[in-house]
Amino acid sequence: MAGHHKTGGDAVDQNRRAMLAGTVKGACTVGLIGALLAIPARRRAEAVALRPPGAMAERDFLAACVRCGLCVKDCPYDTLKLSDLGDGPTLGTPFFRARAVPCEMCENIPCVAACPTGALDKGLKDIKNAKMGVAVLVGQETCLNYLGLRCDVCYRVCPRIGEAITLEMSHNARTAKHAFFIPTVHSDKCTGCGKCERACVLDEAAIKVLPHDLATGQLGKHYRLGWEEKKKAGASLVEPSPEVQVRGMEGVEMSPGGTYKLDRRPDGGLKEFKP
C-alpha cells in the first residue's frame, strides 16, 4: 500500500510519527505535573492547625478555598493568618493559633461573610454552633486544678461558661479532706475558640484546642447505648433474665425483669424473707 504512494506515504508517516511523539511528550508533561502536584496535595488529610469558623471538613476545604485572604482581612482581631512555609496548614490557607490569638467569636461572623467561595459555610448563623476544634485538657500532670488548686481560669474565660467547660468535683484522696474541681470539656458545646488555651496560666498551656478529629473519639457505628435505647423503646430491649431461685425466697412471686415483690412487716423486716 505504501508502495503506491511512496513519497506521499512517507510524508504522512513522518507527520503521524511527529504527532505521536508530540502527544506522548504532552501526555508525559501532564503526568509529570499531575504527579508532582499530587505529592504535596496528598499529604493533607488532617488539619494540624485551627480553621476559621464554618470551615468545611479539611478534605473539602482544600477544594473550595482559593487562598484569597478575604476572611483574614475581615477578622477584626487579627486572629486569622494565611499559612506560609513552616506554618503547617496547606500553603496560603487561613488558620489561627489559639495560644497566640484566639477567636473572639464575633456575633456577625465577618470571616464567614467575607468568604467568596463557600469554603466557610454561610449556613453558620450562630457562632455558638461553630466547630473550629475541641479543647482538650492534655496536661493532666500540670493543670493546677488537677493538682488540687482552684485556678479555674479556663472555666472562667470560656464564652460558654458552665456549658463547654464544667468543673466536675471529685474526692482528693491525697489530702483526704479536700476536693478536686476538674475542668471538663463537653465537645458538643465547645466551639474551639481557644480562649481557654490562650488564658491558661502555665508556661505551656495544659488545655489545648485540637482539630475535631484529633480531639474526639468515634464510636463504631454499630454501638448502641443500652440505657438510651431503653428510654426510646419505653422498655428494656433485652429479654428478662430467667428466674433464679434465691435461697430464702422460695415461693415468693417474681415480677418481670427479675425482681421479687416483697412486702414489709410492721417492724420494717421483709415478710417473705425466710433465712
Binding site: G31, I33, G34, L37, A38, A41, R59, L62, A63, T90
Partner: peptide
C-alpha cells in the same frame, strides 16, 4: 492540563 488533572485526582486546588 496537568494541573487540571492534578486537581481532579487529589481533590484540592492543586496549582
Amino acid at each position: 492540563g496537568g494541573i487540571l488533572v492534578g486537581s481532579a485526582a487529589t481533590g484540592t486546588i492543586a496549582w
